[in-house]
Amino acid sequence: MTPDLIYGLCGVAVFGIGLVGALCAQDRLRRVLALKLCSVGAGFLLVVGAWRTPPATPDPVPHALVITGIVVMVSATAVALALIRRLQSLEADDER
């Protein structure tokens, strides 16, 4: 049992959980969160792929890719949340 095996399966599981949430969650906020879980799962896969048995140093390229992925994901999350806020404001106005 090496760390890459353990965390690789963990990443796949997190991705799967996120997928269930993205397809099934009803609440808008929860769906955003589920998508974020998917992105963490994908990040796990790349980080695990970069891992080499110590003392060898890991491959830096996937690390850079995951950092890029994290920034991209926070941007997408911010836009989705802005849509949710705006929509909720409009719907609240309707009810009044």
């Binding site: 760390p3 969160l33 990040g43 695990v48 890991p58 950092i67 994290i70 994901m73 926070v74 949340l81």
Partner: peptide, 23 residues
């Protein structure tokens, strides 16, 4: 643990921190 400290920093600061604040 997977010797990716840069990624860990980015995830903690942006993935968990900023995203959590946004949520």
């Amino acid at each position: 643990r997977l010797s990716a400290p840069d990624v860990a920093l980015a995830e903690a600061a942006i993935g968990a921190g900023v995203t959590g604040a946004l949520l």
